[in-house]
């Protein structure tokens, strides 16, 4: 990707709300037709970032450009209605007094027949043909959100901002709608930014994840990268579950409470934390006296089992394995692992 492809650019954005910083020197570029998820806990600044792109918040300082044109700097502020960016909201926000067709036509300009044609196209796109006369409260939440997306896309919008669009729906519906909408959006030439606090939503929807925390970008990469190769302990623990075990490196060896490993990456000697995903650990029954830990709690999840193993050091480790049923509470066990990630202690 070269610089030409950048459709949205944020440079060194600062934003405070009543003296609490929401964004601190944020830099972010989004490329044409990318599907990006801004992922982070509530208060991390992801929604503020989205609203700054949309023009609903003014940054305190920095520079925002859209389609190569500056829309915000010290002198300039282009209001949202001039930015030609579609937005879909958590609370759906279909106008309750307008029919579905009227909602979709809300942002359209031009002759009546042009409008009708475009509304027809959009209704077809979202699979609600012949339902245009209904009022929003007459259709389901999932259908409402699809109409909201149609409304945002109707004026031939190239950029679509989705602010937690699925979180007002129940779990089953959410998964279904996510797939539907992803399918719709990948057909179109549209750049999508999704804001969410739900990592599974982000992983299944986007090809690029921007992890945010305390108003800064923690990691920016593919879902797999973020999961397998987190840049820091915060990312590691926010994405999936992680065990952190203290480790020491002496020259060529990594010494941990559950075994000694070779220092293949040639890390410098010192105190470390070793991060291991629960599914990367295997668990074996052990004879008394040879155990590394004792099973103190377990959860049965059908095809999987989760064990909490108390180590000799007192620390509890989470282990997730395929269900075999050969290990019970209070059993002495040994643990084995291969994938891991080292973080140097500050």
């Amino acid at each position: 990707m070269n610089q030409q492809d950048v459709i949205i650019g944020l440079e060194n954005i600062d934003k405070k709300f009543q003296n609490t910083p929401a964004l601190r020197g944020l830099d972010l570029s989004i490329h044409r037709n990318e599907m990006v998820a801004l992922l982070g806990p509530s208060g991390c600044g992801k929604t503020t970032t989205l609203r700054i792109i949309g023009g609903f918040e003014r940054p305190d300082s920095g520079l925002v450009s859209i389609r190569g044109k500056c829309v915000f700097d010290k002198k300039r502020f282009i209001p949202p209605e001039k930015r030609k960016i579609g937005m879909v909201f958590q609370d759906i926000a279909l106008f309750p007094h307008l029919s579905l067709s009227e909602n979709i036509a809300f942002g359209l300009k031009g002759s009546k027949s042009d409008k009708n044609q475009r509304v027809g196209e959009m209704l077809e796109l979202i699979g609600l043909v012949n339902q245009g006369k209904k009022l929003p409260h007459m259709i389901s939440g999932g259908q409402q959100q699809r109409v909201a997306i149609a409304r945002a896309l109707a004026p031939k919008t190239e950029i679509l901002l989705l602010d937690e669009p699925f979180s007002s729906l129940d779990f089953q519906l959410r998964r279904q709608l996510r797939q539907d909408i992803k399918k719709i959006l990948t057909q179109l030439d549209v750049t999508v930014i999704l804001v969410t606090h739900d990592q599974y939503e982000a992983f299944s929807f986007a090809e690029r994840i921007v992890m945010m925390h305390d108003g800064q970008v923690m990691q920016d990469g593919s879902p797999l990268e973020c999961y397998q190769n987190p840049k820091n302990t915060w990312v590691a623990s926010f994405v999936g579950t992680a065990n952190f075990i203290p480790a020491k490196i002496y020259e060529e060896r990594i010494v941990t409470p559950i075994g000694i490993l070779m220092n293949k990456q040639r890390e410098t000697s010192g105190d470390y934390q070793i991060m291991i995903r629960p599914e990367d650990i295997s668990i074996l029954p052990a004879n008394k006296g040879e155990e590394q830990g004792i099973v103190e709690n377990s959860m049965f999840l059908g095809n999987r089992e989760i064990f909490f193993v108390k180590l000799g050091s007192g620390q509890s480790i989470r282990v997730q394995v395929q269900t075999r049923g050969n290990i019970r509470l209070q059993d002495p066990v040994r643990l084995h692992f291969e994938h891991y990630k080292l973080f140097k202690k500050a």
């Binding site: 609903f56 209001p79 949202p80 209605e81 030609k84 937005m87 909201f89 942002g107 945002a152």
Partner: peptide, 16 residues
């Protein structure tokens, strides 16, 4: 009235 109604309208080209 939800702020989102107003925001949605503005993103669709309605002035303040």
């Amino acid at each position: 009235q939800n702020q989102s109604y107003l925001d949605a309208a503005r993103s669709l080209g309605v002035t303040q």
